[in-house]
């Protein structure tokens, strides 16, 4: 894949633009009062992260990220939001001091993470292989080295599905009266 070679501040322009979009949308998710807008901004964030995967030569991951996150998980979130009929007015109020404390805590975490990780790039052997992110290569690894985790994740999915159905099931009338009697 051919890349633009335009550099701004010594960085490729596509990385800068995508990072800008990603961070802006992520900030919009957490600061917006309307949950529906938050979901839409989060979908936008996932799209830009998928674009990051593409410039990192992880093509299959980019598509799976779009299908699973933007396509399945966020649609689930949207459905639940519309089911619960949430809007700006139902948004719980947060105290000002709590917001300041959250900002300081997140800023401190950022400083600690950046300071502890900024040397780690020296230890990365830069050895990109052509086609490492394609389905053929990933499938080979998934069904040989990672076969047991793959099967286990299937069981996890089954358990999550049963749990979600059980939790989401509305209690029938005689069941709920039974509960009230025992309570």
């Amino acid at each position: 894949m051919q890349y633009l070679s335009v550099l701004i501040f010594g960085l490729p322009v596509e990385f800068l633009v995508l990072s800008f979009i990603t961070i802006l949308c992520a900030l919009y998710v957490v600061t917006n009062k309307n949950p529906i807008h938050s979901v839409l901004a989060l979908i936008m964030t996932f799209f830009s992260i998928s674009a990051h995967y593409i410039i990192l030569n992880a093509q299959f991951l980019a598509i799976v990220n779009l299908i699973v996150y933007a396509g399945a998980i966020m649609v689930l979130f949207l459905f639940v939001l519309m089911l619960l009929n949430l809007n700006k007015d139902s948004e719980p109020q947060v105290k000002m001091g709590w917001q300041v404390a959250a900002t300081i805590a997140a800023g401190l975490l950022l400083v600690v993470l950046a300071a502890s990780l900024h040397k780690s790039s020296e230890y990365v052997s830069r050895n990109p292989v052509e086609g490492v992110g394609l389905v053929k290569n990933l499938g080979k690894y998934l069904f040989s080295e990672f076969l047991v985790p793959f099967e286990l994740s299937g069981i996890l999915f089954l358990a999550a599905m049963v749990g979600a159905v059980f939790l989401g099931k509305r209690k029938t009338d005689d069941e709920s009266t039974e509960m009230e009697e025992t309570a």
Partner: peptide
């Protein structure tokens, strides 16, 4: 994973996605 040319990192991402999907389903329920 891409910088080191090792596919294991990308497979870990798949497993994280599986866990995230399961977590979202149960959490929303």
């Amino acid at each position: 994973s891409s910088y080191m040319g090792d596919a294991s990192g990308q497979l870990f991402v798949f497993f994280i996605m599986v866990v995230a999907a399961a977590e979202a389903a149960v959490g929303l329920a």
